[in-house]
Nucleic acid binder design. Sequence first.
DNA 1: AATAATATTTGCAAAATGCAAATAAAATGA
DNA 2: TCATTTTATTTGCATTTTGCAAATATTATT
Lengths: 148, 148
Amino acid sequence: MENPRELFQIMTRRFGMLNKNCCSSGGNDLSLVQSHILYEIDRLDQPNVQQVADILGMDITTFSRQIQTLVKMNLVKKSQLPEDRRIHILSLTTEGKYTAAAIDAEMNQYLEEVFSHMNEFEKETVLRSINLLNNAMAKSTVCCKPLI
Amino acid sequence: MENPRELFQIMTRRFGMLNKNCCSSGGNDLSLVQSHILYEIDRLDQPNVQQVADILGMDITTFSRQIQTLVKMNLVKKSQLPEDRRIHILSLTTEGKYTAAAIDAEMNQYLEEVFSHMNEFEKETVLRSINLLNNAMAKSTVCCKPLI
DNA sequence: AATAATATTTGCAAAATGCAAATAAAATGA
DNA sequence: TCATTTTATTTGCATTTTGCAAATATTATT
């Protein structure tokens, strides 16, 4: 087989292309990063600004501004924590949840189309493999440290 | 298992983080896109500007400017085709080849570290799966059309 | 020769990025 | 307790990236 990096390079690029088309759900036109942000806020439990920025590997200042944009778009809510008023908890608004769900559905639909080009066994193997990979990356010291 | 999109989302993000650290090889500090550009120019045979932009799914004007930067950095050479002087062929300079190879080696080293967290059989399965996936994406109608 | 088509570049204005510094609030410690 | 340090988040600013529209350069077509 070819070199591993080659395989990964191609795969991530193609998935990135999928992702690119995905994010115009619900009237709102989102960038790729913005869709990642919605995804993580949805996934995590009461995360604060710093946590989400860390998980996404984004600079905190860039992230802060992205959040401001998403708040203006009425997709994200930011609420100061009473116990510690330095901390601001992020959550999705109803519209944000709707948008996140729409993107998720659309992406899964895309992926189904991709999987339609292989048989059920192959599909299962692929999904299991990616799971394996994610776990390995989680253990890795060279990346991915800040995750849940 | 979780939903497929979830798996992909996490995987591509983590690989992206790997990629982020990768690109400072050889003194030159490259962005992620720039490393992708070097990679594709290296891989393809005498590609022109339009072809590489298409493969990377980049806007041609953005791409044109990135090439200008890489030419200034002495990593890429752009030569007008005598038979059709509208077309400009891209190639890597010696320094560009060196840089591309250094990045490739570094990425493979990172990936080896990741694979060290699984056994040989799992590694083989994962690599085969990604290959399967790439082929399926290549056939897909929802992405990835412009590829080699 | 005039017009259309193709390949690439520039003009601009918007968005994204990231460092340094500012602000706000809590924790620590003499 | 009050001064200092630490933590969380935001702004200032300068750079880079992006992409549409238009310009340029060159070849193909009529």
